[in-house]
Each structure stands twice: as C-alpha cells, then as structure tokens.
C-alpha cells in the first residue's frame, strides 16, 4: 500500500483505494450474498416449463378434425369462416378426438352465440358483416338460414342497409328520409359483391346539393327542400363540412 502512494499522485492513489473497496464489496455481494437461484434463469424456466406441461391439454387444433369430418373441413376452408378454428365455436375438443363416441363437443345453436362477433358495434372495422340481433330475423336460430361452416348472406343484399346499417338507420329518421341513397351515390352493382374494390361515388361539389336547395333548384324534389343562397351560404366550404348529409340538422 505504501508503494502505491509513492507511485501515483496522492489523490489518485486514494481514489484507487476507494474504487478497489467498492469492487471488493461488489464482488462479495454478487458472489456470496445473492442466492444462486436468483441469478439462474434456467432454474426459473425449468419450473415454468414443468408447470405448463402439467396442465391438461384441452384443445386439439383444427387440422385433427379433418381426419373424421373431412367434408365440413373442406367446406369451411373456402368459406367466409375460413379463418375461424373449429374449436372457436365448438369449444375445446381434445377429449372428443381421443374418444369421439363418449365425448361430444358443444354445438352452439342458440341465437346469442353468433352475435358475439356479428352484433353491431362501432369499434368493429367498417364493412365487417354486422347485424342487429334483435331486429335481424328474430326467433329462428341463425343456422336455420346460414350454414355456420360456409356462411353467406343467402342472396346478394339488395339494400344498402345490410352493410351500412348505421347510416341507413340514421337517414331513416332524418329530413332526408325521402331521398334514396342512390340520389347522392352512384353505386355500381359490383359494389355489393366486392365493396372494397368497387366503390360508389360521393358528391363532390356544392352545386350538387344546390340541385334541390338553391333558389333555382331544378330537381323534381326541389320544391319541398328549404332554400338557401348558394353563392352566400356557407361561403367556400362544401356543405357536408357543416351538415351531415345522412342526417342534416339545422341549429337555430
């Protein structure tokens, strides 16, 4: 120690001593004080793996079902429900695959089941098939009209409301109730089959609403529509920046 103090400048030598002291304490803490189990991750994992392995297996996965229910499997594969696993609807079926005659999986036949995914809910993506379970063909089980393994809307829907329920319901109680959707949107027939790739038009200009609402509106419904001065009213903005077209309201 004496040598150290001669060799280095005094302050450095003292710091080295302090540093070494920290190092020794640190090494002692790490090597002696901390329990080995705490550092050894594999021990913790091993326990976790054992714990998980001990759990009973309840799900079989849907490929197994193909062995015996090949027809249903094939039907479902190409339908709208292709992304759903069989056990999403039939519940865990491992026991059934082991002994099909003794154990039968549940069959979700009641009407409350499908609306878990299909009831109208604003947080679902636009275009996801949604229905109002109270109003949509009540009293009959869903499976009586839709094949759960290959669901289709039995026919191509005629009404826009099948897919745009919220808008249709809103318009139905609004001042624009007499206006058909197609007054304002030109809808190609293909839109109802592949709505994502073929889209209807939307009004673009102020003059469009002016057909009925301008002082000199020419449309055949124009006589019932309240009139505004197209040049002045709302200035340069398009009308739907202030009036929601599907439920036009006027605050007095």
């Amino acid at each position: 120690m004496g040598k150290l103090f001669e060799k280095f400048p005094d302050p450095l030598a003292r710091l080295i001593v302090v540093f070494l002291a920290f190092l020794v304490v640190g090494v002692i803490v790490v090597a002696v004080v901390i329990p080995k189990q705490m550092m050894d991750v594999s021990a913790q994992w091993a326990d976790a793996v054992k714990r998980e392995e001990a759990r009973p297996i309840k799900y079989a996965g849907f490929h197994v079902c193909a062995e015996c229910h090949d027809k249903i499997y094939e039907t479902k594969k190409n339908g709208y429900h292709r992304d759903l696993s069989c056990e999403t609807c039939h519940g865990p079926a491992k026991a059934h695959t082991d002994d099909p005659d003794k154990v039968k999986p549940v069959i979700p036949a009641e009407r409350t089941f499908c609306p878990q995914c299909h009831a109208y809910n604003p947080s679902r993506p636009r275009g996801f098939p949604q229905i109002n379970p109270v109003a949509h063909n009540p009293l009959k089980p869903c499976a009586s009209c839709h094949n759960p393994h290959d669901p289709k809307p039995p026919t191509t829907p005629k009404e826009c409301s099948a897919c745009h329920g919220a808008i249709a319901r809103m318009k139905a109680v609004s001042h624009h109730v007499q206006l058909a959707c197609t007054t304002c949107h030109e809808v190609p027939q293909r839109h109802k089959v592949s709505p994502w790739s073929v889209k209807p038009t939307k009004p673009q200009t102020r003059e469009f609403c002016g057909k009925c609402h301008a002082k000199d509106g020419k449309d055949k419904m124009a006589k019932d529509a309240p009139k505004i001065d197209l040049a002045e009213h709302g200035e340069k903005y398009v009308c739907w920046q202030c009036h929601y077209p599907h439920s036009p309201e006027v605050e007095q």
């Binding site: 005094d10 302050p11 003292r14």
Partner: peptide, 18 residues
C-alpha cells in the same frame, strides 16, 4: 477528502488534469 493532506505541486496539478 479521504484523509488526503497532500497539497503539493504534483497532487494539485493532477487534480487539474483529472
């Protein structure tokens, strides 16, 4: 001060460098 008492030239100039 870690019981240091060295205010000599070497120590002080080391302080500055450090």
């Amino acid at each position: 001060a870690l019981y240091s008492r060295d205010t000599g030239e070497v120590a002080v100039s080391f302080d500055h460098k450090a």
